[in-house]
Amino acid sequence: MASLRKIEIIDSVFDPWKLQQDYQATSMCGRSDYGATASFIGTMRDINEGDDVISMVLEHYPKMTEKQLNQILDVACERWLLLNVLIVHRVGKILPEEPIVLISVWSKHRADAFDACRFLMEELKHRAPFWKQEALSNGTSRWVEKNTKG
C-alpha cells in the first residue's frame, strides 16, 4: 500500500511541475527507495468536437470527489506497489493551455508507476464527479456529455 498520498482540488491556475517538485521535496525528503516517477498532466484544449472553445467551467461535487478519488487510490494501492501519489484537479473557470489535472505516482520500479498512473487517470475520468461546461467562440455554451476515447 502507498504510505503517502495527497488529493487536492484547486480553484485557481496551478503549475503542475512546481506542485510535483514541491510535493516530492516535502513528502519524500530523505527517502531514496523510489526509482520511478510517472506523471500525467491534462491540459485544456481550445477545440472540441470541431468547435472553437474559449473557456470552460469545471463543476464538481465537493465531498464525493475526494471520497471517490480516495477509493480509486485504494484500489490502485492494492494492485501495484506504490510509494506515493499526488492527484491535483482544477475546478472553476479554465482557459485553454491551463492544466486541468495532475497525477504523479512514485514507485520502486517503472511498471508500477506507469500502470498505476494510467489506471488512476482512467478511473478519475469515469468515477470522479466533475463536469465541464464549454463556452464556444460563437457565444453559446454547452455541457460536455461524454469523455473522449482516451
Binding site: 464538481h60 464527479p129 469523455n147
Partner: peptide, 10 residues
C-alpha cells in the same frame, strides 16, 4: 441523495 449526468473530469 445526488443526481447527476455522466462525469467528464480530467
Amino acid at each position: 441523495v445526488a443526481f447527476f449526468p455522466p462525469v467528464t473530469g480530467g
